[in-house]
Design a binder for these strands. Structure first.
Lengths: 139, 139
DNA sequence: CTTGACCCTATACTTGGTATAGAGTTTACA
DNA sequence: TGTAAACTCTATACCAAGTATAGGGTCAAG
């Protein structure tokens, strides 16, 4: 299977597949005589797993951890669980932050219900005046 | 006021201030004879406004729109309101997505309550099997 | 035999900054 | 007055998680 077929089957872009290879999430495949990547079904499964993890918003690094763990079937899965737990906590944190932002925005927005002029706009006045800053989290 | 003092007063890093200048959110200040940036209190207010907008998770582009609008006090504030409304909707969308992710993760995690071996780990099995993909939104 | 579809590598771009190198300037203190 | 510390300057590289492009090579059909 060449990269185009793999891309179609997985729904991932060709560049994304090459990107995962560079990031070592996917091991480098065999090459044809003309230097084309040639994949087996193992690669397909691996990519679907990666896609699944990405759909769960896991970072490349987190996925890398889980993949490494998965490669050693007799090891404990404590690390995998810790990775997932941390990820769940991260998402919860982000949701809380976004909700706080949203309520600030909504209350701000409610101060200008009819469109008026800039200089009288309640939204802009509030933007000028809000003192309490909301922390921003980068994930 | 030199850039260091402005950085202290605003709580923004020096690099961030120069970054906002490059992005044209902040107009280029006067320079001293030795080419140091020299700021007035107007710049301080502008930066606090920008900081406030960033704390509300607005993008540079959104802030740029709002700043442009703000520069014309007699124009309608409809655009500002539209920007804020879209931003609120974006956040709501993201919150919904993250909640969906979280419940998937939590249900997955619950399938491996005692740490066991990788090959028996319910979390990994679920990761292998979940078919329904969750859409990811990039904001 | 040439056109189109595919593949290759390498590089630049995105967002919102942060971190560095290597240089010049100003301030404090002895 | 000297000099060392603290400050500033520009330019560049880096982060995540890819996307987009340039400029080439390869393959199958008509």
């Amino acid at each position: 299977m060449k990269i185009g077929a793999l891309s179609t089957k997985t729904g991932l872009s060709i560049q994304a597949i090459r990107f995962y290879e560079r990031k070592a999430l996917l091991s480098a495949p065999e090459r044809t005589q003309s230097n084309y990547r040639s994949y087996s079904d193992v690669a397909l499964k691996q990519l679907m797993f990666i896609k699944q993890c990405r759909a769960l918003d896991m970072t490349i690094e987190e996925i890398s951890l889980v993949l490494q763990a998965r490669a050693n079937p007799d090891n404990s899965c404590a690390e995998v669980n810790a990775t997932i737990d941390k990820h769940i906590a991260d998402i919860e944190h982000r949701v809380d932050e976004l909700k706080a932002l949203q309520s600030t925005l909504i209350s701000m927005r409610s101060s200008c219900t009819i469109d008026t002029k800039i200089k009288e706009c309640g939204v802009l006045h509030k933007l000028d005046n809000i003192v309490e800053m909301q922390a921003t989290y980068k994930k």
